[in-house]
Design a protein around this nucleic acid. Structure first.
Length: 465
RNA sequence: GGUCCCAUCGUCUAGCCAGGUCAAGGACGUAGCCCUCUCAAGGCUAAAACACGGGUUCGAAUCCCGUUGGGACCGCCA
C-alpha cells in the first residue's frame, strides 16, 4: 500500500512550489490507490501561525487535493519526538551539546569569513560526563564511509559521511527539529514514498542515518526539481502572485492550475491538456524531469482559457457568480435565469481567459445601462452613424420575435438598401449596446441582451444622453 | 568557501536509460496569412534549441570526462 504525505510548514501561504509538491504526492497516491496524508510541520513556533494553517488547508481544498489522514500537527506530537531523542541519547547514538546558539553563530560567522565550511566541530561529542548546564541533543553522524541516496528521480546520489554534521535533534528548550521530526513521523505514519522538493536532497543522508540509528528502514525518496521565477531565482513574493489563493481570486480554475502544475516537471508525450482523471491515470515518477523549471504565467493563462472552454456553462455560471457580485454587476440576492445566463456564458466562454474576464464581459448582458468607452464613442457615434442607429432602432422595435435570425435579416436589409458595409452598421450598434468595439457576434449579443434593453440603450445613444 | 543537483527553441517539454528512423517533434508566447460585423476561437505558415571542449564509436542530443553556466543545501528554520 502506497502511503505518501504532504508536509507544509505554516510559515506562509501555500505557493506554487508547495502546491506542485502536494499535487505530485496526491497524484501518486491516487494513481496507486494509496493514501495521501497531510501533516503540518509547525515545530518552528515563532514563525508558524494558525492563519497560515487555515490558508494552506483552504488552498488544498480549492485545488481539490483531498487527504485521507490528518491534518496532523507536529506540535501535538512533541512528546513522541522527545521520547525517540532520549532513546538515541541513552543508546549513545546522540550526545548532549552544551554550546549556546550564540557561540555557534559566532563560530559559524568566523568560519565563513575564513572560507571554511560553517559546520559544527563536534566539540561536545567528546564530553564524557553529564554537565549541569542547558543542553541540546545532537545526533552522532558516522565519521567515515559513504551514504547512498537511491532517488527515484535523481538516481543514485552519493554523500561522504565526513561531510555530514552532527545535527541537533532536540533543542535546549526541549522542542525537536525538522530533520528529526520528519524521520519519526514518516516512520510512525508508515510513509512509503517521500516526494518532496530537491532542496531537501542534501538533508536526506542525515535522515537516512537517523532511520538506521532508530533501527528502521528508510522510505523511498523522490526529489523533484524546483520551480523558479522568470529571473531564474527561487520563486518568491517578488514574482507576483505566489499564493495559490491569489490565482483563485484572479479567476483561475483549479483544474487549470492543476494541469499547469502537473506539466511543470512532468510530461506525458506531447499531451498538454489533461483532466484530473487523466492526470491520475497517467502520472508516474519515471516521467518527472530532473531540471528546474521556470514558472510561465502566459501558459497558465492559456491553459485556463482551454479549461474554461471545456467547462459546461452551468458550472461556469456557478463559478462566475462570486465575480459578478464582486464587480457589482449582480446583487447577492438577485437571481438570474439559468438558461439565459448559460446562453450569455456560451457566447463569451471562448473569448475569456479567466473568470474575472468573463464576469467583466457579462456586464453588458446584465446591466440596464452600460458605460460607453470614450474612444469607441468618438470613433463610432457621430453624425454619420446616428441616422443608421435610428434606422436600426426603428426596425428592431418592430420585431416580434427577437431572435438572431430576425435581427440579422434587419441588418442585412439596411446594408443592402443603403449600400453600406456590414461593419458600418454593426460597429456603431456594438458600441451602443456593449460600450465597446469588441464583443461576440452582434446578432447574438442583441438577442441575449433582449429587445427591451437594446431599444433603451440605442435610444439613449441617439438622444445623446 | 564546501557538498549536492541540473543543462534540448525566450518558456514548458518529447527524444536520452536500451547511440543510427532527429537535416531534433509538440505546446505557450511572437510574427504573417486565411476565416470574418469587431474581438476571440479555429486553420495554415514562419522565426526559434541539442551550453562549450575533448573522448568512445562506422555513427552521439543520446554514453564518458572536463569547462562554463544555473540552482539547492551547509541553522538550537522547515
Amino acid at each position: 500500500m502506497v502511503r505518501v504525505r504532504f508536509a507544509p510548514s505554516p510559515t506562509g501561504h501555500l505557493h506554487i512550489g508547495g502546491a506542485r509538491t502536494a499535487l505530485f504526492n496526491w497524484l501518486f497516491a491516487r494513481h496507486h490507490n494509496g493514501k495521501f496524508i497531510l501533516r503540518i510541520e509547525d515545530t518552528d513556533r515563532s514563525r508558524s501561525t494558525e492563519e497560515y494553517i487555515e490558508s494552506i488547508i483552504e488552498a488544498m481544498q480549492w485545488l481539490g487535493l483531498d487527504w485521507d489522514e490528518g491534518p496532523f500537527r507536529q506540535t501535538d506530537r512533541i512528546e513522541i519526538y522527545r521520547k525517540y531523542a532520549y532513546r538515541l541519547l541513552n543508546e549513545n547514538k546522540a550526545y548532549r551539546c552544551y554550546c549556546t546558539p550564540e557561540e555557534l553563530e559566532e563560530r559559524r560567522q568566523k568560519a565563513m569569513k575564513e572560507g571554511k565550511p560553517p559546520r559544527y566541530d563536534r566539540r561536545c561529542r567528546q564530553i564524557g560526563e553529564v554537565l549541569d548546564k542547558p543542553f541540546a541533543i545532537r545526533f552522532k553522524m558516522p565519521l567515515e564511509g559513504e551514504t547512498v541516496v537511491d532517488d527515484l528521480v535523481k538516481g543514485k546520489v552519493i554523500f561522504k559521511n565526513s561531510e555530514i554534521e552532527d545535527l541537533v535533534i532536540l533543542r535546549s528548550d526541549g522542542t525537536p527539529t525538522y530533520n528529526f521530526c520528519v524521520v519519526v513521523d514518516d516512520f510512525e505514519m508508515r510513509i512509503t514514498h517521500v516526494i518532496r522538493g530537491e532542496d531537501h536532497l542534501n538533508n536526506t543522508p542525515k535522515q537516512i542515518h537517523i532511520y538506521h540509528a532508530l533501527g528502521i528502514n528508510p522510505p523511498q525518496f523522490a526529489h523533484i526539481p524546483m520551480i523558479l521565477g522568470a529571473d531564474k531565482a527561487r520563486l518568491s513574493k517578488r514574482h507576483g502572485a505566489t499564493s495559490i489563493l491569489t490565482y483563485r481570486d484572479e479567476g483561475y480554475l483549479p483544474e487549470a492550475l492543476i494541469n499547469f502544475l502537473a506539466r511543470l516537471g512532468w510530461s506525458y508525450g506531447d499531451k498538454e491538456i489533461f483532466t484530473r482523471q487523466e492526470l491520475i491515470e497517467y502520472f508516474n515518477l519515471e516521467q518527472v524531469g530532473k531540471a528546474n523549471a521556470i514558472f510561465n504565467a502566459e501558459k497558465l493563462l492559456w491553459l485556463n482559457s482551454e479549461h474554461i472552454k471545456l467547462t459546461p456553462e452551468e458550472r461556469l455560471f456557478e463559478l462566475v457568480k462570486p465575480f459578478l457580485i464582486k464587480e457589482g454587476y449582480l446583487k447577492e440576492v438577485e437571481i438570474l435565469d439559468i438558461n439565459w445566463a448559460c446562453k450569455a456564458i456560451k457566447s463569451l466562454k471562448e473569448r475569456c481567459r479567466t473568470l474575472k474576464e468573463l464576469a467583466h464581459a457579462m456586464r453588458y448582458y446584465i446591466l440596464d445601462y452600460i458605460e460607453i468607452d470614450p474612444k469607441a464613442r468618438e470613433k463610432y457615434i457621430n453624425s454619420d452613424t446616428i441616422p443608421i442607429l435610428r434606422e436600426v432602432t426603428e426596425r428592431l422595435s418592430k420585431v416580434e420575435d427577437f431572435t438572431q435570425d430576425n435581427i440579422e435579416k434587419i441588418f442585412m436589409d439596411i446594408v443592402n438598401e443603403k449600400g453600406l458595409k456590414l461593419g458600418q452598421v454593426a460597429q456603431p450598434v456594438r458600441v451602443a449596446i456593449t460600450g465597446n468595439t469588441v464583443s461576440p457576434s452582434i446578432y447574438e449579443v442583441l438577442e441575449i441582451v433582449g429587445k427591451e434593453k437594446v431599444i433603451k440603450r440605442l435610444r439613449r445613444i441617439i438622444d445623446g444622453t
